Simulated scan of single mutants.
Amino acid sequence: MKKVLLGCLGTVLLLAAILVGLIAYFGPEYNVYLFPPNPQTYARSVIRKLDFGLYTSEDWERQKAAALEKLKGAKSYQDTYPILKELTQQAGGKHSYFYSPEENPEIGPESQNQPQTENQAGILYLKLPAFSGDLKAAGVYADKLAGALKKDDYQAVVLDLRDNTGGNMYPMLAGLSSLLPDEELFQFDYGNGSKTPVSRSEILSQSGLDSTEEEPKEVPIAILVNDQTGSSGEMAALAFKGLENVKIFGQPTAGYTSGNQVYSLYDGASLQLTTSRILDRTGKTYENEAILPDVETEQPLEKAQGWLKEQLNTK
């Protein structure tokens, strides 16, 4: 009997040792550590994520080796930040950022931003600010847009994306989903050649919202952009670009048209890494280049209102 018990105990201990080994080896990829990581282990876990950056070229191994050499002298997580910031730019380009815990955008002022809605004589005006908040705030953002669009007291829509510098595109597009066809809106085009299409239903699924709209609302839509429309603000414009009932007014956008993966790190820092280009519905590739308006103007709202009235008068 004792031999059986000892055998069972030995098996349990062996399994426990294997489990500990697996956690120790794979855990850092998911911010799971048996003990707080030292600065070098912390930095290496970040660098493994940077391997998926869009711009990890043939020079990447040399860049990593140089960074790891510098990191040997780090005595705190804070000591690693400048090196990791530089390496993030090398791996992901201008649209990639390493944020310290204090710089984390999810706790910044943009987390309080919410849309503005106003019915202007039958033209529904929607102002979409940048947004980088938590799930609850994201739901409020999307619901405010969706609630305004559910009403039947408008015949046209203005989407004002001026000064929308980005953040989380999902509450923006989920809130506007009743205006979008349930088709491929755009694609993420990765460095390894794979592509991931994004549709209205996928946007709603990612946002945790109900997908009940069968057909998009058939109303003319004017989109306003400027040189401060960037990142997710640009993605919101691209989701509509090319539709027959849509026209874009304003100035060329900021040129942060690429797909990013966001990672939360052990100490509250975060990594925003560019991993893909963007293909719009027409097949055009965007790689951190500006979206050009259909009508370039210094008076986008006035021009948009004039175009919308023309569309309504021809019905």
Rank of each mutant, 00 (worst) to 15 (best):
89 Q>R: 15
185 L>I: 02
81 Y>Q: 08
109 P>N: 11
135 L>E: 12
153 D>I: 08
164 N>I: 09
178 S>G: 05
181 P>K: 11
106 E>C: 00
117 T>F: 01
81 Y>A: 12
119 N>P: 07
175 G>P: 03
149 L>R: 05
167 G>Q: 04
151 K>E: 15
88 T>N: 04
153 D>A: 13
138 A>L: 07
107 I>W: 12
162 R>I: 11
157 V>E: 13
150 K>T: 10
74 A>D: 09
82 P>G: 08
134 D>V: 00
103 E>M: 14
183 E>M: 05
127 K>R: 15
121 A>K: 15
127 K>P: 03
143 D>L: 00
84 L>M: 07
147 G>I: 00
71 L>W: 01
162 R>M: 14
95 H>T: 11
145 L>W: 02
136 K>N: 10
84 L>R: 01
169 M>N: 06
74 A>M: 05
155 Q>K: 15
121 A>D: 15
98 F>W: 06
111 S>W: 06
135 L>A: 12
166 G>I: 00
114 Q>G: 09
171 P>G: 07
186 F>P: 09
77 Y>P: 09
145 L>P: 06
184 E>Y: 02
168 N>H: 05
160 D>R: 11
72 K>W: 00
159 L>T: 03
159 L>E: 01
141 Y>F: 15
102 E>M: 07
177 S>Y: 02
179 L>V: 06
112 Q>V: 07
103 E>A: 15
86 E>L: 06
174 A>N: 07
132 S>D: 13
175 G>Y: 00
152 D>K: 15
127 K>A: 13
111 S>E: 08
148 A>L: 06
149 L>Y: 02
146 A>F: 00
185 L>F: 03
165 T>D: 10
170 Y>E: 07
115 P>A: 12
79 D>G: 06
173 L>T: 03
161 L>I: 08
139 G>I: 00
117 T>W: 01
171 P>Y: 05
86 E>N: 12
177 S>W: 04
155 Q>Y: 02
102 E>Q: 15
183 E>Q: 14
81 Y>F: 15
104 N>I: 00
139 G>R: 06
176 L>N: 03
97 Y>L: 07
83 I>D: 02
108 G>Q: 05
149 L>W: 04
111 S>V: 02
71 L>E: 02
114 Q>Y: 08
167 G>C: 03
107 I>Y: 13
126 L>Y: 05
141 Y>K: 04
183 E>S: 14
181 P>R: 10
141 Y>N: 07
